[in-house]
């Protein structure tokens, strides 16, 4: 197990290098720093000096890979690739367009992101499992049929409508909670209720349908027939036998997104004005702040790879038959 994990983590290194090369290619090779400078300073009527100044301020005036003017190790380190891309590996994300330190910004924005994402995630899984159990308990009945139809209909509504509609109904019409904003500490709850509820509702259609399929697959297995043959009631079969076994694919399926909760949710955070990483990312995309987008791409990939490793571990934990070699 330990050896497997070490190997798994070592395998992550080439993947991260690959991610790094992709982002570097996108941000510096497809477009030269000159193009970026023109974009930031306005395309027309920009002097070459202004571009040079912009590049020098941000350290984009170095060569891409090889700096022949430098001496010693500087040939490789005094380049854009080393200062902008390779430094990401040690957690040095550099500065944003407005001059702020990206690492500090990320650290301070993680809290609000998690405050929305964690309750949404936990409640979402719980509610979907409960709904799926209800549908499976009444399977092949009218309730089941219309429940599935409702799930498909809910899947077909864009997430934007849930947020816009929810904000309009709850905050504007009924005036139950503030429309958007955030407060530190315990006061945050009234800003968090609505985003969490909307997050749960908008995800419920797809996950209920998926979990229902898991339950139905489990119900067709031999041990369930044995349990019924023993004379157990349907409720006992469902809750004591099927639920436990169907939780295996459900849990192992959601583990991969747990690390990504740190990234926050793009839409929810930007609509509700929550100062988390999701709204940070959206603002950066809108302001075309390439350093922030690059940093978020890197962090996102690291978290995804962590999620993959956690998934492997969770398989072993919930199903003792599986051994990682």
């Amino acid at each position: 197990m330990f050896a497997y994990l070490v190997r798994r983590l070592l395998y992550a290194i080439p993947i991260l290098i690959g991610v790094n090369i992709i982002t570097f290619t996108l941000f510096f090779v497809v477009n030269t720093p000159d193009d970026m400078a023109r974009m930031q300073l306005g395309v027309r009527r920009v002097t070459q000096e202004a571009i040079e100044k912009w590049k020098a301020e941000r350290g984009y005036d170095k060569p891409l890979f090889m700096n022949r003017a430098a001496s010693g190790a500087g040939v490789l380190t005094d380049t854009i690739f080393f200062t902008k891309s390779a430094r990401l590996f040690v957690g040095d994300f550099g500065r944003a367009e407005d001059g702020r330190d990206i690492s500090k910004e990320i650290a301070s924005r993680m809290g609000p992101s998690l405050a929305v994402a964690v309750p949404t995630f936990l409640l979402g899984v719980f509610v979907a499992v409960v709904f799926a159990l209800v549908l499976v308990f009444f399977r092949a009945s009218r309730l089941d049929f219309w429940g599935v139809v409702l799930c498909v209909a809910m899947m077909s509504i864009s997430g934007l409508f849930y947020i816009i509609g929810g904000q309009y109904l709850v905050s504007r019409l009924w005036r139950l909670v503030p429309i958007s904003g955030y407060a530190a500490g315990l006061d945050a709850w009234k800003f968090l209720v609505l985003p969490v509820v909307i997050g749960v509702v908008s995800g419920i259609g797809a996950s209920t349908r998926l979990y229902r399929a898991f339950f139905l697959e489990e119900i067709g297995k031999d041990y369930v027939r044995t349990a019924r043959a023993k004379g157990l009631s349907e409720a006992v079969v469902l809750f004591r036998h099927v639920l436990k076994n169907a939780l295996i694919p459900i849990l192992t399926g959601v583990v991969v997104v747990i690390p990504l909760l740190f990234m926050g949710s793009l839409l929810t955070e930007s609509f509700f004005g929550i100062p988390g990483l999701g709204s940070y990312t959206i603002d950066a995309i809108r302001a075309q702040d390439f350093s922030i987008v690059r940093a978020m791409v890197f962090i996102g990939s690291v978290l995804y790879i962590v999620g993959l490793v956690l998934t492997d571990i969770s398989y072993v934990l919930v199903d003792p038959r599986i051994r990682l070699e």
């Binding site: 193009d35 023109r38 995804y304």
Partner: peptide, 26 residues
């Protein structure tokens, strides 16, 4: 494909679209 799929989809799209916009604008 593991490398590509490990980049969160929206961010990869955002990065590519931003770059495309620079190309079109210039």
């Amino acid at each position: 494909y593991t490398t590509l799929s490990s980049i969160p989809g929206v961010l990869l799209i955002a990065a590519a679209v931003l770059m495309m916009e620079v190309v079109i604008d210039t």
